[in-house]
Simulated scan of single mutants.
Amino acid sequence: MTATHAPTAAAPTAGRRPAPRRVLWGAQILISAFLVFASGLPKLAGQADAVETFALLGWNDLMRYLVGAVEVAGAVGLVIPRLAGLAATGLIGLMIGAVLTQILVIEPAWALFPAALGAVFAVVAWDRRAQTRAQTRALLGALRR
């Protein structure tokens, strides 16, 4: 048997993602489902509690639609590998707004949930930073041409 045919220790794990990354993808999928079904679509469909919340804030329906659309778009981006880092970064901004809204207007105790989501988005953005950086460079290069 030659050295080129000798089995290596890395062969069984080739092509597999490390466990922390798989857990992170699992969290992204669950949060994405939450953002679409429990948060974004109710705003877009005009569910009564979503309408009441935005009325309490003094915001019109356009803002409700905008926030719902950002949540749905972010959720879709979270589950597309090429967009996950950028989507997570954008969703961090949305969660900062949600935390401030909860603290200043609605109920401060509820600010913990968007803060926790923001922390997960920060981990996703950090994990995907190299890929996001490369994509941003490629996009800027394409715009320069």
Rank of each mutant, 00 (worst) to 15 (best):
M1F: 09
T2E: 12
T2K: 15
T2W: 02
H5Y: 11
A9M: 06
A9V: 10
P12M: 09
P12H: 02
T13V: 09
A14W: 07
G15N: 14
G15C: 08
R16E: 14
A19Q: 06
P20N: 02
R21G: 06
W25M: 12
Q28I: 03
I29N: 06
L30T: 12
S32G: 15
A33R: 09
F34N: 11
L35E: 04
F37C: 08
S39L: 10
S39A: 12
L41V: 12
G46H: 06
A48R: 11
A50C: 05
F54Q: 01
L57Y: 02
G58P: 07
N60H: 08
N60L: 01
N60E: 09
D61W: 01
L62W: 05
L62T: 14
R64E: 00
L66F: 13
L66Y: 12
G68T: 01
V70K: 00
E71F: 12
G74A: 08
V76W: 07
I80G: 09
G85A: 11
A88C: 07
A88L: 12
T89A: 15
G90T: 08
L91C: 10
L91D: 05
G93F: 12
M95S: 05
M95Y: 13
M95L: 08
G97I: 11
G97V: 09
Q102F: 08
I103S: 05
L104F: 15
V105K: 04
V105W: 09
W110C: 04
A111Q: 06
P114A: 13
A116V: 13
A119M: 11
A119I: 12
F121E: 07
V123R: 01
A125M: 07
A125Q: 03
D127P: 00
A130S: 09
Q131C: 07
T132L: 13
A134G: 02
Q135N: 15
T136H: 03
T136L: 11
R137Y: 02
G141Y: 01
G141D: 13
G141N: 09
A142T: 08
